[in-house]
């Protein structure tokens, strides 16, 4: 599992590389909580490097969404592979998360609302 954070304008971009499962999702959660402590205004999550995600990964992102909403920040997901999109559809969370095609669309989405 590799987690890389870039700062871009008023957002942090978290790039996740590797499977997100019961073993690795606590690492993702820890990184997201650290970004919350740094008062990250908006969070974009790049899932291009994720070929597998289970319910613990989805739960981690639901928690991140709720934390961002509490502080009136925005969370956008982008670059989802079909298998990952399927997991969000299975849990009907594809309607809850703002899922963007790519980084440009995600950056535009945080300015739009």
């Amino acid at each position: 599992m590799e987690l890389v954070v870039f700062e871009k304008q008023n957002a942090a971009i978290l790039k996740i590389v590797g499977d997100v499962d019961l073993y690795s999702s606590p690492q993702v959660r820890k990184k997201i909580l650290a970004l919350m402590k740094k008062k990250t205004e908006n969070l974009l999550v790049d899932l291009d490097g994720v070929s597998y995600m289970d319910s613990s990964g989805v739960a981690t992102l639901v928690e991140a969404l709720q934390l961002m909403k509490k502080r009136r920040g925005k969370l956008k997901l982008f670059n989802l592979r079909p298998a990952i999109r399927d997991v969000f559809e299975l849990s009907r969370l594809d309607k809850v998360f703002d899922i963007c095609e790519d980084e440009n669309q995600a950056m535009a989405a945080i300015s739009e609302g």
Partner: peptide, 18 residues
């Protein structure tokens, strides 16, 4: 229930659905 938006508890739903 899927209308509860909260972390956790989705594993059994995934298993039963797929």
């Amino acid at each position: 229930k899927l209308d509860e938006i909260r972390p956790g508890g989705l594993g059994v739903h995934f298993i039963n659905t797929v």
